[in-house]
Write a protein that binds this DNA or RNA. Structure first.
Lengths: 117, 117
DNA sequence: TTGACGCATGCCGTTATAGGAATACTATGG
DNA sequence: CCATAGTATTCCTATAACGGCATGCGTCAA
């Protein structure tokens, strides 16, 4: 029945951080707690948009909320980013200098063999 | 004019890797080149789906193609994952053991101050 | 109690997805 | 030159994201 469309933004961290503004929010939250309005103003987005993005981030467990008076303070829950960190880590070898050296070494070998045949 | 909807999957690496199957493809390509049909079978997806996902990955520069006879061999271009790697790296401190220790140290301080007041 | 402040939610409209099935290439082998 | 293996593309449908705007709701101050 359910004709799959794109996965929900709330389905996992990967989908949640696909949106640039949500990444901005997470980046800001590294500094500590932020009430919604301040956060929205700091990032140049409307208050409703900020609330909506924060909702998504909350649903995937990337942020926490705490009520203080009439404001709600959001903070980072970086644990939720771990899956992304680990997945991307699986490609680390491709950026390592040592790998680059190995790679160019292999290229050189190929080059030499071509020239000597 | 353009009433923004969700950003295109081809807009950047973040959006491209939001789809699980595309992550699977990239994971597989770490091992080397793959022709479409083999890749599709290996990952249990239809050939058209594989082609479509590969198109997205190609458009954001995460894979390369090379024609060999009548087949097209796809290979990883991990350079395109760098932005993701760097962004997520900005949160690394939150998983470091040293940070955890610092964190609990701060918690202890707070705890002590509460108790001594 | 009544405002007002701080946020969350609802609704609307446009855009674009992912999957399935069918079809349109395209280079190769005979 | 033609049949075919190997891919890419098109059409279709259901789902939902995102932004703007308006509104609902809880909390605090006077």
């Amino acid at each position: 029945m359910a004709v799959m469309a794109r996965a929900a933004t709330t389905s996992d961290a990967f989908n949640a951080i696909a949106e640039p503004q949500r990444r901005d929010i997470l980046g800001l939250l590294r500094a500590g707690e932020w009430p919604v309005t301040d956060l929205a103003q700091e990032l140049g987005m409307s208050q409703p948009q900020a609330s909506k993005h924060l909702r998504v981030l909350r649903e995937v467990g990337l942020v926490r909320v705490r009520g203080v008076g009439r404001q709600r303070r959001y903070s980072l829950d970086a644990e939720g980013l771990r899956p992304v960190h680990e997945w991307i880590g699986g490609f680390e070898q491709f950026w390592n200098e040592s790998f680059d050296r190995l790679n160019s070494y292999v290229q050189d070998l190929k080059h030499d063999r071509r020239n000597s045949q």
